[in-house]
Design a protein around this nucleic acid. Structure first.
Length: 957
RNA sequence: GCCGGGAUGAUGAAAUGGUAGACAUAGGGGACUUAAAAUCCCCAGACCGAUUACGGUCGUGUGGGUUCGAGUCCCACUCCCGGCACCA
């Protein structure tokens, strides 16, 4: 047998796969389909890096595995080819992006092919091709015609030096300075521009709710939910009155999630952008006494970018009081002052906020600074969680929820008070002794007169004091886990569980506790500190709220909304998607303007609306397409004299929001994909990609899918049923790879040196797929050695039957690898194969069936060497290309070793015990084992636990 | 600040509540070799006591708890890494 020459065999098989179109997805097959997709790459000039390889290899393994199991697999690849880097390169060099992109794609494709990835290359697409962006433009028209695309004026980041619009991420310099142009370091300003938006907010609820249907990492779902930022609350209108006589009163609505705190509203704030402010400071109005001061503040605030607001010390509140105007608190009817302040955002809610300093952190900070009164209207729940009674039985408190505390407190009682939901705890009166700190362990003597015996002597001091005896700990556990509140009795044996739901409680308000003279000494200081120095944002009982006093705040929300005539509403952080880019290298927006400047969609028959080529790439202050004579002429020719083209292009995220549909039917000239093809292949069954850019891309792709569904073009609502992220691969020193640091690892040299199979296997073997892990060049040799061992095993293959141990391991390995591949645990699948091959290497001759299994299992992971070895050993493709199944009856070897513990400590082990040995026999064997017997003799055996075939534990006292 | 994720040998890591460290790298020892590389075999968590072959204690970030038994479950904490960040 020849040496393992990876170059020769990898080239050979890649050639054959290419020629036979081995991985073509079959549109007409009746096999069950599975659509396995990688996030398609942006083909950057620097080529594929090891992070791409990781994700692509994982899906490739999964695809090959599924093919072996008889699925009809769609596993395509394409290029997200429009984008800034190519354009920036063009600005620098003058080389048109179409050229650099083409060569980058060639590089990527070559690298991918060298990895032996089983893509269906007949479905390759590039978003920059007219054949593709025709349909990107079609999607624009589709949204436009259905009222989901519209033009509006919006602020953009503008670099005055480069004369160009910057995306938010382009406003951070390489050194991390914010609010400056990424290229020239000039301070970014805000500029108003008319731009196209997609109305993704129409789908906000569906985008949140449908996350429940998909199998995605929980953290990704949370990110999506946070990004959408749905919050449920109320809109309440505040009456506005003026000092100036004869001025008409107005109404200003505010959005709040805490209508229960309305009685605590002591001021109102408007955003600088608020329409009412704009009116009040214009020349025709004269209601503000300090109009000029307000005007100056508003102008300054508007010049601040979002980034400026971040740069500012976020805690430092600014604002100006509106003199001569007051709001009326709809709950108390009191006159309250009004302010304009930029901590209120114009674009969220109604742009107006009711100030509740006692129960909102920001309002509290503002109120402190502007000397606005703080009025507490919610008092934290107080839960008595521990009461120690002294000696006698009759002193043990019958812990009646209403009266126990007041009636039975006596001087020596100990108690623990917990302020529910505050994040703060009270303390045990007098029990934390001098010099002791919460979190430390204290030792207490259990004395006769305390009535406690056999209690643990060391106990941890908690923030609220300390508790003795473990029963208390258990209660705390339940308290925290189930939000069930516990009232404990002194003897630790009786615990009354007070359920929050049924309201059978021992709730006491802070005020009530404070009124109890016995408690005052212990709690007064704490409470005074608490109320003066912190806002309380948790749940509790209403106080200072008129007829609502004593009501739990959650319950009060609805009632107070009713009381003040507000309405229940929802608000979102999600904004509509601004898709206009003043850029060249993107899909042109298919819109033209008539001589009056009114936009018209370019009719579908004129698609693709070709990206012109007669432009310079140097920034000039207008979009590059504005320079194109051809585009203007084309427009006039089709639509008439005086018509002008839209000169912005679309955000590249638009291109990537629908590409997964195109793979189903990539060459269709009449539709973005035929309904049959969509029905055949979609939705995507497994979607793999990095976790870093997934919030936006996934959101947009889901939006497109939901829009298509809404208008009846497709019948499902979620594009990606199952999503997994490959983790970031770090440089060898554990830092992030970055071009500027120069520690980017290119897979090519390792493919050259060790072969694609080794690189694939190594990246899978590094650790869990989703984990962040450092590259380690030295370790690669390990998987290479493994492959060489497998190679050499081929020489020892013989037509003999496997011995029992081999047969057992063979079946165990089939089971293990199958289970691992199902859940993408590639790392342990590789190690199971290593165990199996190490075993085979120890045999004189390798039984043919065992070797065939090894090849079958290895094939998805290291395909080239497997194909070659199968050929060398003389196997027909059909003999080894089908996934094996484990024989359940052969998974357990017939002798096992059983560990024996005494009191949980390993004291011996029984070897060569027949598998399935009875409990009695096993225990007898264990008791007679000399090492174990020695330990059993030290006490009296009271109990024995037997876990069949695994472990025995004797409990000895 | 908030929301996630994490912490296991020198390193990457493994482990349905059941013999912690599988598998691999680096390391040590040996075989083969004139030698080296490659390959193969053996050792390998820490500490203590014996050293023929062993025995014990400790050990999965820290402190507690539940359990016959905890890396795994519960509570509290520390540190690290990501994301979001005045969203009322």
């Amino acid at each position: 047998m020849e040496q393992y020459d990876h170059k020769k065999i990898e080239q050979k098989w890649q050639q054959r796969w290419h020629e036979s179109e081995a991985f073509r997805a079959d549109n007409s097959s009746s096999k069950e389909k599975i659509y396995i997709l990688d996030m398609f790459p942006y083909p950057s000039g620097s080529g594929l890096h090891v992070g791409h390889v990781e994700g692509y290899t994982a899906t490739d393994i999964y695809s090959r595995y599924k093919r072996a199991q008889g699925y009809n697999v769609l596993h395509p690849m394409g290029w997200d080819a429009f984008g800034l880097p190519a354009e920036n390169y063009a600005i620098k060099t003058g080389i048109p992006p179409v050229q650099t992109t083409a060569s980058s794609i060639d590089t990527f494709r070559g690298q991918i092919k060298r990895l032996g990835l089983s893509y269906d290359w007949s479905r390759e697409i590039g978003t920059h091709t007219p054949e593709y962006y025709k349909w990107t433009q079609w999607f624009f028209l589709f949204l436009y015609n259905n009222g989901l695309a519209e033009k509006r004026v919006a602020k953009v980041n503008w670099c005055p030096k480069d004369q160009t619009v910057l995306a938010n991420e382009q406003t951070v310099s390489e050194s991390g300075e914010k609010g400056v142009c990424v290229r020239c370091g000039t301070k970014v300003v805000q500029k108003d521009l008319a731009q196209w938006f997609f109305k993704i907010t129409d789908f906000a609820d569906a985008l949140v709710d449908d996350l429940d249907q998909v199998d995605w990492p929980e953290s990704t779902k949370i990110n999506q939910r946070n990004w959408i930022g749905r919050s449920e609350g109320a809109e309440v209108s505040f009456k506005v009155v003026f000092d100036k006589p004869d001025t008409k009163e107005g109404l200003i609505p505010v959005f709040t999630t805490r209508p229960d705190t309305l009685f605590g509203v002591t001021y109102m704030v408007l955003a600088p952008e608020h329409a009412w402010i704009t009116l009040a400071i214009d020349d025709n109005h004269d209601v503000l006494v300090n109009k000029e001061e307000v005007k100056a503040y508003v102008v300054a605030a508007k010049n601040k970018t979002d980034l400026d607001r971040q740069i500012d010390d976020a805690k430092e509140k600014t604002g100006v009081k509106l003199e001569g105007v007051w709001a009326i608190n709809p709950a108390t009817k009191e006159k309250i002052p009004m302010y304009v302040a930029d901590y209120v955002l114009g674009g969220y809610g109604t742009g107006a906020v009711m100030g509740v300093p006692a129960h909102d952190e920001r309002d509290f900070a503002f109120a402190k600074k502007f000397n606005v009164p703080v009025k507490q209207v919610v008092a934290p729940y107080v839960v008595i969680t521990g009461v120690d009674a002294p000696q006698s039985e009759e002193n043990i408190i019958k812990f009646d929820a209403e009266s126990a505390i007041i009636k039975h407190w006596e001087k020596d009682l100990y108690y623990v008070v917990e302020f529910a939901n505050t994040g703060h705890h009270g303390f045990v009166g007098g029990h934390v002794e001098e010099g002791e700190k919460p979190g430390e362990t204290a030792v207490r003597e259990a004395t006769e007169e305390s009535g406690y015996k056999n209690i643990k002597k060391s106990t941890q001091l908690f923030e609220y004091g300390y508790s003795r005896g473990y029963k208390v700990r258990k209660s705390r556990e339940e308290l925290c886990r189930d939000r069930i509140y516990i009232v404990e009795l002194a003897d630790r044996e009786r615990t009354d569980i007070v359920d929050k739901e049924t309201k059978q409680g021992s709730w006491k308000t802070a005020d009530e506790i404070l009124k109890d003279p016995v408690l005052i000494n212990h709690h007064k200081l704490y409470f005074e500190h608490y109320i003066q120095n912190a806002q309380f944002t948790g749940d509790g009982v209403l106080v200072n709220s008129g007829t609502f006093d004593g009501m739990p705040n959650e319950e009060a929300k609805k009632k107070i909304i009713e009381f003040v005539g507000g309405k229940v509403t929802k608000t979102y952080k999600l904004r509509d998607w601004l898709i206009s880019r003043q850029r060249y290298w993107g899909a042109p927006i298919p819109v033209v303007y008539d001589p009056e400047g009114k936009p018209h969609a370019v009719p579908e028959e004129h698609l693709p609306w070709i990206l012109p080529t007669d432009v310079e790439f140097k920034p000039t202050g207008v979009s590059p397409l504005g320079q194109s004579k051809e585009l203007l002429e084309r427009t006039e020719k089709i639509f008439g004299k005086g018509w002008t083209p839209e000169i912005d292009t679309m955000d590249t995220f638009v291109c990537s929001s629908w590409y997964f549909f195109r793979f189903a039917d990539p060459h269709n000239e009449n539709e973005f994909a035929s309904p049959e093809a969509i029905k055949k292949w979609l939705p995507v069954d497994l979607y793999m990609g990095g976790a870093e850019h997934t919030v936006l891309h996934l959101m947009y792709a889901r939006f497109f899918t939901k829009a298509l569904q809404k208008f009846g073009l497709i019948s499902f609502s979620e594009p990606f049923l199952k999503l997994r992220h490959q983790g970031t691969i770090l440089a060898e020193d554990g830092t992030k790879m970055s071009k500027s640091v120069g520690n980017v690892i290119n897979p090519d040299e390792f493919i050259e040196l060790y072969g694609a199979d080794t690189v694939r296997l190594y990246e899978m073997f590094m650790g869990p797929l989703e984990a962040m892990k450092p590259w380690n060049t030295k370790s690669i040799i390990g998987v290479r050695r493994f492959l060489e061992r497998v190679w050499k095993l081929g020489e020892k293959v013989a037509d003999i039957a496997p011995d029992l141990a081999t047969e057992t391991l063979r079946n165990q390995t089939i089971k293990k690898v199958s289970e691992d591949l199902d859940v993408l645990k590639m790392n342990t699948a590789v190690s199971a194969l290593m165990v199996f091959s190490n075993h085979l290497a120890g045999l004189e001759q390798v039984p043919r069936p065992a070797y065939v299994t090894l090849l079958q299992l290895l094939a998805p992971l290291a395909p080239h060497i497997t194909y070659e070895l199968a050929e060398v050993v003389g196997l027909e493709h059909s003999e080894w290309s089908v996934w094996p199944t484990a024989d359940e009856t052969k998974l357990v070897s017939h002798t096992v070793s059983i560990a024996v513990q005494v009191n949980g400590k390993l004291r011996g082990s029984l070897t060569d015990v027949p598998s399935g040995v009875s409990e009695d026999e096993a225990l007898t064997l264990a008791r007679t084992n000399p090492a174990v017997a020695l330990w059993l003799a030290k006490g009296k055996e009271v109990k024995a636990i037997y876990v069949p075939n695994k472990i025995i534990n004797f409990v000895v006292l």
